[in-house]
Nucleic acid binder design. Structure first.
Length: 523
RNA sequence: GAUCCCGUAGCUCAGUUGGCAGAGCAUCUGACUUUUAAUCAGAGGGUCCCAGGUUCGAGCCCUGGCGGGAUCACCA
C-alpha cells in the first residue's frame, strides 16, 4: 500500500466507505441507456423542451445516460458535472433535494470523483449560461475509479493540460482514449476505412477468407519472420509475413476473387512507418491482370477517401492530396529518367553502379542490379511523388512472384502506388507458370544461402504443386492498411493508427529484484 | 544497431552560477441550489527515471544503464 499515491489511497478509502453505506462500488446490473450526449445536444429544442419558471415544459424530454464523470463543480446544495459517453460530453445538473436522503451529501459530494462511471436519468434543459444539460432525478454509481484520471480542460477551443506524453498515451491507451477525443476519432475513421474496403470488395462478389497465421514455411514477401513452436507436433512454425501464397492456392481451388484483411508479422526494427505486426489487405482476382487492377485500386481508394471525408481531397501533413481518378501512371524506368536524367533500362550491374555513384549514392558489392535500381528510385523519385501515382514495370529480380512482362525484357508486370512519397499498394499480374516460379524460388534460395536474411531459404513445394494443377491468370494486390490509415487520418506515426503499438516492456520492479537475487545466489 | 533530444507532484510544465524542490489544474477541509478552466478561504502531496562519480553541497556537472521521441540504418 505504501507505494500508492495519496490519490490512490484516498480512493480506496472512499471505496470502503461506500461499502459501509451499502453503495456497491461495482454494482452487478447495467443501466438502461436511452440517449447519448451528442443526441441530447443535437436534439434539444428550446421551444418544446425548455421548462418555464414553474418547471413545466411543453414536452419534457426524459433521458437516461451512462458514462464517466470528467469534472465536478459543487456549489453547496447543487452541483454540475460533465458526463462523457462514447458520443461526447454533456453537462449534468444535480441537486441535493432531488436525490434520496443523504445521498448527495454523503455519497456524491464526498465519495465520488472524476473518473467514476455513473448512470444518470432526468430531463434535458438549458441553463442560464445557455448550456444544454441534464437535470438529474435518478443517479447511480456504476463503477468506482481508483486511479486519478488526468484532467484536461478546454475553454473556447483552447485545451489546457492536454495529455501529450507519447509513452503515457501508448502504454495506457485506455486513458489516451478517455482524455483525447481526437484519438477516438482516428480509430473510428480507421474502422470505417476497413469497413468501406470490405463493403467495396464484397459488393463485387469477392470472397473474404481466412488463411493460416501459423505457417510451416513463410513466404510472399521479403522479410525476417517471427518463429514459434507447436508442442504437440514438435515443430517450428512461423508467423506469416504475408498471406499471398495461401490466397493464390484458393484461386487454384476455383474461387475467382478472394481477399483477406490480415495481420502480418515481420521481425524488423520499429519506426514511424513500421510496427512488427501490421494489417494488410490482399486481394486476388482470376482472369485479370495488373492493368485491370490499377483501375480497381483507383476506384477503391477514391471511394474510401470520399466515404471518410466526403471528398477525394485529403490534407496529409503539408500536402493537399487528391485521390480523384485518374492517377498518373508511369513506368519505373521512365520515372527514374525523368528525375535523374539517367536511362537505366537494360543496363548491366556495372553501368547501374556507375550511375548510382554519379548520383552520389554509396554502392557496395552485395547490392544486385535490382537493389541498385530500388535505391535510386527510393532516393530520387519516391519522395517526390506526392499525388497518387502508379509506378509500373519493375525489375524481375525484385519480384519473385510476379509474372514477366509481356513486352519488356527483364521486367515484370507489377505496380506500386506512391502517395505522399510513400508506398501504399503493391500489385502484379501473378506468376502462374510453375516452372518459372520454381526458378525464381531457387534464385531466392541462392540469395538466402549467400547471406540475404530476407530471402526465403526454403522452396514451398506445396505452392508449386498447386501451380502445377493450373492457376488462371490472376491479378493480385496488397494494401498496407496502417499506412493508408495514416494518410486518411493525417497521422505522422504508425503508432497513432495502431491502438496498442509494440513498446519495450515497462521495467517491473519485482522482476529486477528477482534477477538481483538470482545474481547474488549464483556464486 | 548509430546519432541527437527528452525523463521533476495524478496531469501540464518552470527550476537561476551547483546552495531549503516550485506553479497551474487535480486532491483534501470549510462556504456556496443554474455553475462552466465555477468562485472564495485554508491545507496536504516528490524514488527530481535508475546506479555510480565529482563536490562542503547535485534536479542541475561527469560516467554507465533504463524508457520514450526524432533522424538514419533496416524494410518488395
Amino acid at each position: 500500500m505504501s507505494n500508492l499515491s495519496e490519490h490512490e489511497i484516498r480512493r480506496r478509502e472512499e471505496r470502503a466507505k461506500l461499502e459501509d453505506l451499502d453503495v456497491d462500488p461495482y454494482p452487478p446490473q447495467g443501466w438502461e441507456v436511452t440517449a447519448h450526449a451528442a443526441d441530447v445536444l443535437a436534439g434539444f429544442d428550446d421551444a418544446k423542451h425548455q421548462p418555464n419558471e414553474d418547471g413545466e415544459a411543453k414536452e419534457t424530454w426524459r433521458v437516461s445516460l451512462a458514462g464517466r464523470m470528467m469534472s465536478k463543480r459543487v456549489m453547496g446544495k447543487a452541483a454540475f458535472f460533465d458526463l462523457q459517453d462514447e458520443s461526447g460530453t454533456i453537462q449534468v445538473y444535480i441537486r441535493r433535494d432531488d436525490l434520496p436522503e443523504h445521498y448527495y451529501n454523503q455519497v456524491f459530494k464526498k465519495l465520488l470523483d472524476i473518473g467514476d462511471v455513473v448512470g444518470v436519468e432526468g430531463f434535458a434543459f438549458r441553463t442560464r449560461m445557455g448550456e444544454v444539460s441534464i437535470h438529474v432525478e435518478r443517479f447511480e454509481l456504476l463503477a468506482k475509479s481508483l486511479r486519478p484520471l488526468p484532467v484536461v480542460k478546454e475553454v473556447e477551443g483552447q485545451v489546457y493540460n492536454e495529455v501529450t506524453d507519447k509513452e503515457f498515451r501508448y502504454r495506457q491507451r485506455y486513458v489516451d482514449l478517455v482524455v483525447n477525443p481526437h484519438v477516438r476519432e482516428v480509430f473510428r475513421k480507421r474502422a470505417r476505412l476497413i469497413a468501406t474496403l470490405r463493403h467495396f470488395l464484397d459488393a463485387r462478389g469477392y470472397l473474404e477468407v481466412e488463411t493460416p497465421v501459423l505457417q510451416p514455411l513463410y513466404g510472399g514477401a521479403a522479410a525476417r519472420p517471427f518463429t514459434t513452436h507447436h508442442n504437440a507436433l514438435g515443430m517450428q512454425l512461423y508467423l506469416r509475413i504475408a498471406d499471398e501464397l495461401y490466397l493464390k492456392r484458393l484461386i487454384v481451388g476455383g474461387f475467382d476473387g478472394v481477399y483477406e484483411i490480415a495481420k502480418d508479422f515481420r521481425n524488423e526494427g520499429l519506426s514511424r512507418f513500421h510496427n512488427p505486426e501490421f494489417t494488410m489487405l490482399e486481394l486476388y482476382v482470376a482472369y485479370k491482370d495488373y492493368a485491370w487492377m490499377m483501375d480497381l485500386v483507383e476506384e477503391m481508394i477514391e471511394h474510401v477517401a470520399r466515404e471518410l471525408h466526403g471528398t477525394p481531397d485529403v490534407q496529409v501533413g503539408d500536402h493537399a492530396i487528391s485521390f480523384a481518378r485518374p492517377w498518373k501512371r508511369i513506368p519505373l524506368f521512365e520515372a527514374i529518367t525523368e528525375k535523374t536524367g539517367h536511362d537505366l533500362y537494360g543496363k548491366d550491374r556495372a553501368a547501374l553502379a556507375a550511375a548510382a555513384e554519379a548520383l552520389g549514392l554509396e554502392i557496395d558489392e552485395t547490392m544486385g542490379a535490382g537493389k541498385i535500381i530500388d535505391e535510386i528510385f527510393g532516393e530520387f523519385v519516391e519522395p517526390h511523388l506526392i499525388q497518387p501515382t502508379f509506378i509500373t514495370d519493375y525489375p524481375v529480380e525484385l519480384s519473385p512472384l510476379a509474372k514477366k512482362h509481356r513486352e519488356k525484357e527483364g521486367l515484370v508486370e507489377r505496380f506500386e502506388v506512391i502517395v505522399g512519397g510513400k508506398e501504399i499498394c503493391n500489385a502484379f499480374s501473378e506468376l502462374n507458370d510453375p516452372e518459372d516460379q520454381r526458378r525464381r524460388f531457387e534464385a531466392q534460395a541462392r540469395l538466402a544461402a549467400a547471406g540475404d536474411v530476407e530471402a526465403t531459404r526454403e522452396i514451398d513445394e506445396d505452392y508449386l504443386r498447386a501451380l502445377e494443377y493450373g492457376m488462371p491468370p490472376t491479378a493480385g494486390l496488397g494494401v498496407g492498411i496502417d499506412r493508408l490509415a495514416m494518410m486518411m487520418t493525417d497521422q505522422a506515426s504508425i503508432r497513432d493508427v495502431i491502438l496498442f503499438p509494440l513498446l519495450r516492456p515497462e521495467a517491473p520492479a519485482p522482476a529486477t529484484a528477482k534477477e538481483e537475487a538470482a545474481a547474488e545466489a549464483e556464486p
